[in-house]
Design a protein around this nucleic acid. Sequence first.
DNA 1: GTAATCTATGAAAGCGCTTACACTTTTTAC
DNA 2: GTAAAAAGTGTAAGCGCTTTCATAGATTAC
Lengths: 336, 336
Amino acid sequence: MPGKFQGVTIEDVARHAGVSTATVSRFLNHSDKIAPLTAARIQHAVSELGYQPGMAARVLAGGKTHALGLVVDEIKGEFFNPMLRGISAAAGEAGYELLINATAPGRRPAGFPLGEKNTDGLIVFTDSLPDKELRRMHQAGFPCVLLHRSAPAGLAMPCVTVENKRGARDMVDYLIEQRGYRRIAFLRGAEGHEDSSWRERGYREALESHGLPYDEKLIGNGFFDEQQARETVTGWIRRGLKMEVIFAADDDSAIGAMLAVKEAGLRVPQDIAIVGFDDIRLARYLSPPLTTVRAPIEKAARLAVEQLVRLIETGSADPLTLLPTELIIRESCGFA
Amino acid sequence: MPGKFQGVTIEDVARHAGVSTATVSRFLNHSDKIAPLTAARIQHAVSELGYQPGMAARVLAGGKTHALGLVVDEIKGEFFNPMLRGISAAAGEAGYELLINATAPGRRPAGFPLGEKNTDGLIVFTDSLPDKELRRMHQAGFPCVLLHRSAPAGLAMPCVTVENKRGARDMVDYLIEQRGYRRIAFLRGAEGHEDSSWRERGYREALESHGLPYDEKLIGNGFFDEQQARETVTGWIRRGLKMEVIFAADDDSAIGAMLAVKEAGLRVPQDIAIVGFDDIRLARYLSPPLTTVRAPIEKAARLAVEQLVRLIETGSADPLTLLPTELIIRESCGFA
DNA sequence: GTAATCTATGAAAGCGCTTACACTTTTTAC
DNA sequence: GTAAAAAGTGTAAGCGCTTTCATAGATTAC
């Protein structure tokens, strides 16, 4: 039963308006001056017939797909909502269609990988694409913008992300200076996720600049995941590890940490304080409400689209767009 | 600078393999028997050259886009994550590309509306498309599946949604029978959102079947929105409206209600109990944890895709798919 | 052994659109 | 008034693929 639903064609419009298809095309693309009278006749024919240009033909003839691709590994976590909203809105505003491809389930089982054959450019989220593929595309001159990751060594690909290191640094500075904490544990994020390594770097810098020792034992894996973080922290407590506060690389793992602490019969923040990163919606509803670093995710997403569109249309874009974060102080870090 | 990135074409492959383009096409589409030897040669050429069929030409010539469209009004609320994950995954598994269009910001400002020109079928979420448009597509024989809404009168369009009425009915039955509540307020959802009206119907049925009066004053608007719900409930309290429990049409408005109650210096659930609908992640982290009705959103999304694919490929689909909900009892409704 | 039937393949006609080029009017320049 | 430039439009050649139709060779049937 698969049928063809190509209704009105440009030819119908041309006939209806008494002009050639070329003129109609020019009218539709504003690509050339055409007489006001003719324009009116075409416009009339278009709305009369309810004509809508067929993408396929347009793409095939024009070489542009008018579509942006978004490559993600998995649609998961609160992170996604604002990101998607930003990308979707910005793409629409720029006049581009949006194609989404989740590569995760078994690494690209899906139909057609996004790329130069079906999009004009790609937004690549974190490590959803292997470096090799990134290199290939860059090599081919295909526009790509990286979101929440930096370019592989030697590749001049525009990146958009938040000031992870700075945000983490600010947070830890605050914990040390304003709260007087000394033993600060850190829960790493997912492997390969750059946001995480930058946050860790910020943590270390803050320690260093205050003359505090960096203690391997105070570093654990949270994997940006509630369950995993919970297990790690439970392990710490069971082994008698002493710490005053846990800095989780994201709010999800902070939640896991909070759970673990409570399950161990300890109080947050009196026995162990907890802080996170991202400021997901949930953060302020936790008890106690979570102190965290707010990351402008939607904004970053919009900017990534803007950069990509610039890259496509003008051939150049800013190499690096870094968005500032903001400290959100709530009760989980203890009171002043 | 807008360039063309069409690399290797089918012609290159044909030449490389010493066959005609027709044969290559047949090989690629498994559409016809071809000699094993030839097949091998073509296969070799394909991987040698790294050939990937260009979508545009394929679509233009073949009449199928191999893409599914998702039309939503706005990417907002916790609801979206599981839904999108489900749709994206299912589409990928079925070998379809996924196009997403958010119609909301000013009602379709975006580039190209999704439809028969760029997709093989559409998933339409709630009231993101006017009935007129739905009718037009159905009329044209274009495959569409409705998600979380029913078809306009007289349109035989497959629908996938959850058992809203039943879920609400179960909840209210529970509140009456197990908790002994009598004055149960209801916070409506967004206008035009069918989930909401079914839930309201369930609420009324439960009242009726227990011989409780339906009191207009106990109905308010929550709009599926935290802020709006909060204002409504604050108004109720200020006006001295008496109620034992508030049934919010979704968890977001339940949160708003909870805020309002607390702000008024009352306790949940001792002074006013609160229950919601959906079971978003946040629900169990609220204090007190929210009693609610769990809706299988991701499952519904997957089924919608499955129905759509069936509709596209075989021409028929189930008229109605209704997914069961589940009562999730937590502390916000009071203890037994 | 000849005719009828398959099988594997090629040639070529589009699919609906854009665009280079050519052409006919107008307009402008002097 | 004529030559040169500009403006508006048509003609037709593809874009890369699928698919119908035709054909050559290999089987089968008798």
